[in-house]
Design a protein around this nucleic acid. Structure first.
Lengths: 207, 207
DNA sequence: TAGATTGTTAATCGATTAACAATC
DNA sequence: TAGATTGTTAATCGATTAACAATC
């Protein structure tokens, strides 16, 4: 949709703007300046204005930004104004935590089903359909799915991700400790807890 | 204790080098070149050599790197050659998933205890001690803890993080969807699933 | 020896910061 | 009007890439 290429650095900050604007709206604050945003997010005011200007001019010279309006703009830029359907692959502890994760509502994401090689232990899980992973392709042929959440052990992650991609899913949210990458318009975000933990320990030893 | 300042970009890649070297060692491969590493990690060979050279010269001109040796070097650089003690604050689903997360062993991290405002539901959790969060300070005064893992709702995250920092913990691993930052030698890594999900949706709409 | 590959220095590229005219 | 603040252009800074002498 937008076709200007936005750098990863900017993309990383977009959700932070949104999060802060949501807070401001909840606090009934109606205006905000780039300077105020910059202090809250620990970046420079120049950067805030530069970042936003990639998408348009949303402020008023001399006045600042309307929080409600800018929040809605950010929602649209991020694409979270429209609902997205997700499935969870892997019903282990992390998978189960994700199924019951309240935060999805904020992003307009709905988890519809969970798949595992063994479904007995998922009987008590509520709010989602439970399937054996063998019926993955059949399910995907009958149901539109925007996002596949991969929460299996790393040995199985790549293969399962390929299966959902082959079945037409365009977005992969991967929690296994390997980097997944696809081409052909398939996007992927890796949450690699193991790497994060290593960086934490590294930083602890520096300071 | 290295005192040269290493950029965040480099720090982000360090765990990836380690992860790849571990794989090579497991596959009994004894030598590797910066070119091979670069292909596996989708970066340039120049960058690999540049990154490593911040810490020393670990290769042999004309030959490459010894995988076993470089793996051990990376372990030391990251600081994961020595064990670290962790506690989990918040025994909800994410907290429980973390307690049973096998990956910790790879990083030499041991979760010793979990704290919650209500401990009844944690009776069946094995392998860690269970405490009411009211005894947090007492516990920390008697036990050395390297890392506090924050897995509570965002409303409570900041306050609890402050409590453990005041009690002397130097590393915070935060899973609540807010950015925590401290000074005075306290380091923090934020795993913000909500932001990651938003970036995924953003990227899906670009391509 | 010829080919491969390191570690490092220099060149390039891109992101951040600063500056400022426009204007509320 | 004076002060505040935007959006944008230019300057700076830092990270990535390229080049190459050293050498196995």
């Amino acid at each position: 949709m937008e076709n200007k290429q936005i750098s990863d650095r900017v993309i990383e900050r977009l959700p932070k703007y949104y999060r802060y604007l949501k807070d401001l709206c909840n606090s009934q604050i109606q205006r905000v300046s780039s300077k105020t945003i910059s202090k809250a997010l620990n970046i420079t005011a120049s950067q805030v204005r530069q970042d936003l200007s990639h998408f348009g001019g949303f402020g008023q010279t001399g006045i600042g930004y309307d929080t409600e309006y800018l929040k809605n703009v950010m929602q649209e830029i991020l694409g979270i104004n429209k609902p997205h359907v997700a499935i969870v692959i892997g019903g282990g502890r992390i998978g189960q935590a994700l199924i019951s994760y309240k935060g999805f509502a904020d992003e307009n994401v709905f988890v519809k089903a969970v798949f595992d090689i063994e479904t007995e232990h998922l009987k008590s899980v509520t709010g989602v359909e439970v399937y054996n992973v063998s019926s993955l392709e059949e399910y995907l042929s009958k149901n539109h799915v925007d996002i596949a959440i991969i929460s299996v052990q790393k040995e199985f992650a790549e293969k399962l991700a390929k299966r959902v991609v082959d079945a037409g899913v365009k977005s992969i949210w991967n929690f296994a400790p390997i980097d997944l990458n696809f081409d052909g318009g398939v996007v992927c975000e890796n949450i690699n807890m193991s790497e994060s933990l290593m960086r934490l320990i590294y930083k602890a030893h520096q300071s």
